[in-house]
């Protein structure tokens, strides 16, 4: 009898608690079902009059029901509070965040950092040299004597000098980062591995693929046994890291006065992987730069004994790499100062 009644109370209380949405009504329900004047309390108070056997059953049952109702009340209370919070404190999370707007690095800075990071990890030091250079370091030191047809290949900006210029003592805007080769070698002994990134100048008309101001990257590795196979390794390793995909290197004969043998080097096309596409004009290869084994005359100019050392050097345009990486079609954008370009990086 009593047992049924208790169950009845529990069922009724839980149903009402779940149905309510107001914390005030919830408090009323607590008073109604568990308050001093509630039927439940009456039953609790009457337990002491029951037969001991019945007491053992009803007592724990009543407690259990009490706890159950209390717990339900509590959790419903929290639920209601949370719902209230949810509704009242709603914000529009699709509105933009509050922040200090970040600026943008120039794409050449990004690419140059990528290049430097890879070479530093390979044990290379980063070397520098002046942008305004003597005729000697820019030409003679790298085996391009005054009358050499090699000087034909580069159109050079010359600095005007007050005094009448002696032949060979001119000042130029460096036409290549190779001008730093002998400067570095005069102060350092092999073995060494260096890279020389920097600005170079050519006196030529500009168009989508030519600029009078651009950046080059010289790589120079010298030791007693440094060879073509080592060059292939470093080149393959670098380009694979740089483009984050397996790159193959192809060497073709070429001529630069400061190397022998000299190469033109191509990498497998980054657009088609070497199958042939419009980017590589169906050849599967992209031309990236010149390279070769350092000429003994260059070592000699640097003060090294002839035939003691071997080394390789290579140079390429940083703009060219950036253009390949980001598919940029006009080299003039780099020095345009146009923020519509810069803000993309």
């Amino acid at each position: 009898m009593l047992k049924n009644k208790l169950s009845q109370i529990k069922k009724e209380a839980l149903a009402k608690i779940k149905a309510t949405n107001s914390s005030k009504e919830l408090e009323n329900l607590r008073i109604q079902y568990l308050g001093k004047k509630s039927e439940f309390k009456k039953i609790l108070r009457s337990i002491k009059d029951l037969a001991s056997q019945e007491k053992k059953v009803i007592g724990p049952l009543a407690n259990q029901i009490k706890e159950n109702i209390e717990k339900t009340l509590q959790s419903r209370k929290e639920e209601i509070a949370e719902e209230k919070e949810k509704k009242e404190e709603w914000i529009d999370v699709t509105a933009p965040g509050k922040r200090n707007t970040l600026g943008h690095l120039h794409p050449l800075s990004i690419v140059q950092r990528d290049i430097e990071d890879i070479f530093v990890a390979l044990g290379f030091e980063i070397a520098d040299g002046p942008e305004i250079e003597t005729e000697f370091y820019n030409f003679d030191a790298v085996n391009i004597p005054a009358d050499h047809p090699g000087r034909d290949m580069q159109d050079t900006f010359w600095i005007s000098q007050e005094k009448d210029r002696q032949p060979g003592s001119g000042i130029v805007l460096r036409t290549q980062t190779s001008s730093v080769q002998v400067r570095y070698m005069e102060k350092n002994k092999p073995p060494f591995r260096i890279i020389i990134p920097g600005r170079v100048f050519r006196n030529e008309a500009t168009d989508a693929s030519h600029e009078h101001t651009f950046h080059q990257f010289e790589v120079l590795v010298v030791g007693e046994k440094v060879n073509v196979a080592n060059f292939l390794f470093v080149a393959e390793e670098f380009f694979t890291q740089f483009f984050q995909e397996k790159i193959k290197i192809r060497l073709r004969p070429s001529y630069f006065p400061f190397v022998e043998p000299g190469f033109e080097f191509d990498i497998s096309c980054t657009s088609c992987g070497g199958k042939g596409c419009s980017v590589c004009q169906q050849t599967g290869w992209l031309e990236v730069g010149g390279a070769g084994m350092v000429h003994q005359n260059v070592f000699q100019t640097a003060g090294y004994p002839r035939n003691k050392y071997q080394g390789f050097a290579w140079g390429f345009g940083i703009e060219r790499l950036a253009m390949m990486k980001y598919k940029i079609d006009d080299i003039r954008l780099f020095h345009s100062g146009d923020l519509r370009f810069i803000k993309q990086f």
């Binding site: 070397a127 390794f233 290197i249």
Partner: peptide
């Protein structure tokens, strides 16, 4: 040249000095 297999550098090399300017 395509018949030459790439080989890692053999020479002993110190850790590169940091280029402070850069």
């Amino acid at each position: 040249y395509e018949n030459i297999q790439p080989q890692p550098l053999q020479e002993y090399i110190k850790l590169p000095r940091r280029n402070e300017k850069r």
